[in-house]
């Protein structure tokens, strides 16, 4: 009995650990997508942030400097995305992919040049990392709590504030926002920057909280799982949070299932469990689990007439 309880608690803690970057990315992505800017570049922002967090922490011996650098790095990419998509009305998907690839390359290039460890940063000592606050085994560091807090905060910002109201409007009918005398571009820039902030935190979590350093491609598709969670949550914070937890649970089960034979089923392929978030999202997108409701103006550059 006690064993079962321990297992449950351990699995829950593992779920939360895995879900933390997903939650942060999903909340960040929500702001961007709600404003009408599609962001397939979450992965790249997170990767870049993870690298700069670890690199800065290693050089300055300060975890907090690392967090700051992570946010800064993610903001640079976010602003580039905004510059391309909002100011120059470029293709949002192309821009997102470009930034992903750029991050993939630049982290390794800079890492090798600065630390000469094949793209990795030096291992971080506990003093250079964000450590668990209450339960050492659970890994409940400050970013985990930030992620938990980010969900009601996102909900509150979107649903209860003037900014949120305008944000939702600009993603649906930018013309209405413009006609109300509000700047479409500035609203979208703010959304994109919020996205950078959250993705930066998620990146910092990966390299200086969950792990003790940066390793190449350490995001491993989590930015896309966060994107899937947004779709799965139908662009609403709490359901998206639920999707992140579900995907996190799948991942932590996948780790436990490795090589285990289940009665009646046999060995469940780990890869199947890992691909579940994508498969589920595809089923959702195909309309088998209800319709999805993306913001109407998502992906469409706003062109003001003169």
């Amino acid at each position: 009995m006690e064993e079962a309880l321990t297992l449950v608690i351990a699995t829950l803690a593992a779920t939360l650990r895995v879900a933390t970057p997903l939650v942060l990315c999903a909340m960040g992505g929500l702001f961007s997508e709600k404003s009408g800017i599609i962001d397939v570049g979450l992965e790249g922002k997170m990767l870049m942030a993870a690298f700069f967090a670890a690199a800065t922490a290693a050089v300055t011996d300060s975890a907090w400097m690392g967090v700051g650098a992570a946010i800064l790095a993610a903001e640079v990419l976010a602003l580039l995305h905004g510059f391309a998509c909002i100011t120059h009305r470029g293709n949002q998907v192309v821009s997102g992919i470009a930034l992903n690839i750029l991050a993939m390359g630049l982290t390794v290039v800079l890492g090798t040049a600065w630390f000469a460890r094949g793209g990795q940063t030096p291992p971080l000592s506990p003093g250079e990392r964000l450590n668990p606050i209450f339960f050492p085994v659970a890994g409940d560091n400050v970013i985990v709590y930030a992620a938990l807090l980010s969900v009601p905060l996102t909900w509150w910002l979107i649903e209860r504030t003037r900014f949120g109201l305008r944000l939702r409007a600009v993603g649906e009918v930018p013309l209405a926002v413009d006609a109300a005398g509000i700047s479409v571009s500035w609203l979208r820039y703010r959304a994109v920057m919020l996205c950078g902030l959250f993705a930066g935190l998620a990146g910092a979590y990966l390299s200086i909280a969950q792990n003790a350093g940066f390793s190449r491609d350490m995001t491993a598709g989590q930015g896309f799982i966060a994107l899937a969670a947004i779709i799965f949550g139908r662009w609403r914070p709490f359901p998206a949070f639920g999707a992140c937890l579900a995907f996190g649970l799948l991942e932590s089960i996948a780790i436990r299932l490795q090589g285990v034979k289940l009665p009646g089923v046999g060995e469940v392929p780990v890869q199947l469990v890992q691909a579940m978030p994508y498969l589920l999202t595809l089923f959702l997108l195909a309309g088998f689990i209800g319709r999805t409701v993306a913001p109407k103006a998502a992906g469409v550059p706003y062109e003001k007439e003169h």
Partner: peptide, 26 residues
């Protein structure tokens, strides 16, 4: 040059996509 890795090519790819794609009108 050990300071440069082959991922430099990936950087170039990313930048080319950015400038030839999203910022094509710049």
């Amino acid at each position: 040059i050990p300071a440069i890795t082959r991922e430099m090519v990936v950087v170039i790819q990313g930048l080319v996509i950015l400038f030839s794609g999203a910022l094509v009108h710049l």
